[in-house]
Design a protein around this nucleic acid. Structure first.
Lengths: 214, 214
DNA sequence: GAAGAACCGTACCGTACGGTACTCATTTTG
DNA sequence: CAAAATGAGTACCGTACGGTACGGTTCTTC
């Protein structure tokens, strides 16, 4: 149905408009994201907005697609894994995951998509799921598979193992951030949180006893 | 600041109005929750709505408070815990947690509060957090503490242990449901999911080896 | 049973937004 | 250079919503 990787995306000018729109959304929430506001912030006319994106929903979809295209996940290179390097990679992944989920733009877009979820044909949630989680989940899946191939991890279902890791890392932090809870204190704790979550995950799915924890 | 347990709540008539409003919210999302719509659905006048609840935000707050008052968590009675009865209690708790989070009203209210999170003085998220999670977290905390006192669980920080349990049970299910993903299939799997999550949690924090898993 | 409060239904007002139409300047194209 | 296209800026329209005011009806209270 969709043209997938070869979709034409948008022109630089249109991307600049989408940047303005994202900025507007981050600063003021969905209520601030009016067509007139986007036009004013981007120094373009409303007519151009409708010509380029069709309607307001088209702008929202384009914003999600544009943002997703900006945060492409870097592919890990294959490497000979040891117990400690696997743990290190997992900690980096967990840390990155927390950073992504707590980012301004990510939170704003998730709030936007969630707000539209109860509408009829709102593919925004699906888009966000497809182009956000699926990407980062693929990165984790690769890492976990590599760990299993190296005999360092043991699990039946890769999806389930990833779910364990995700749950241990994120718990209910994402929801609390989406609800607007102040995370200034918690953010300083992300590294420790990532380490402890990975340690727990290795307790569950690791085959070798890791070096003693403090 | 707040009057806590002895707050006057609302009259039966007003609760009926709030029920209609919740119904409206569940069916049509926030856009359907207009003052005129609530008045029509509840067979009351807009003037009464403003008299009772102040303004639209007052209606939203009242809806959250009312819903929270309906799902009061039942207090577990103290009991001599064994390995198996602790596991059984934890599985029931996990199952209940999944059922609550996947409920229509819960999802609708969470979407509502998340949508308002980017507003200035939106205490809705805080309310939902305070009267929702805190309640169910207290139930889990009691259970975990009892398990520790019985020598069946080992953990330093109760909050952190609860976080582990929550993460293993819920993973990213809540977010996916909030984004509108179809959960017909997943819901049939809640019991198995609860069991496997509790087993993993006991692997992490349990002191005794549980009976063999299939 | 009369006085008064509570309340329903509706009409009304101001505002804000989505979307369209139009004018004029700038750029592109033959 | 002329013609065509592109796009900014603005004005405009219809609609929908939050909030208020008012007339009429039912319920309470003495």
């Amino acid at each position: 149905m969709s043209s997938l990787s070869t979709q034409p995306e948008f022109s630089p000018r249109q991307n600049a408009v989408l940047d303005s729109a994202l900025r507007l959304l981050v600063d003021g929430g969905e209520r601030a994201l009016t067509t007139a506001g986007v036009a004013r912030a981007a120094n373009c006319s409303k007519e151009s907005l409708y010509k380029w994106f069709g309607d307001r929903d088209g702008i929202l979809s384009a914003m999600i697609g544009y943002q997703a295209s900006k945060v492409r996940t870097l592919e890990e290179r294959a490497e000979t894994l040891t117990v400690d390097s696997l743990r290190a990679h997992l900690v980096v992944f967990a840390r990155d995951l927390l950073d992504v989920l707590s980012g301004d733009v990510s939170l704003a877009l998730n709030r936007l998509a969630i707000g539209q979820a109860s509408r009829d044909g709102s593919h925004l949630g699906q888009m966000l799921q497809e182009r956000g989680r699926r990407q980062i989940g693929k990165r984790a899946g690769g890492l976990l598979d590599a760990g299993r191939r190296a005999g360092l991890l043991r699990f039946d279902n890769g999806e389930e193992a990833y779910g364990m890791l995700y749950g241990l890392v994120v718990t209910d932090l994402h929801l609390r951030m989406l609800l607007g809870e102040d995370m200034k204190l918690t953010k300083q704790d992300f590294s420790r949180r990532a380490e402890r979550a990975v340690d727990a995950f290795l307790d569950l799915c690791g085959t070798k006893k890791q070096t003693a924890k403090p």
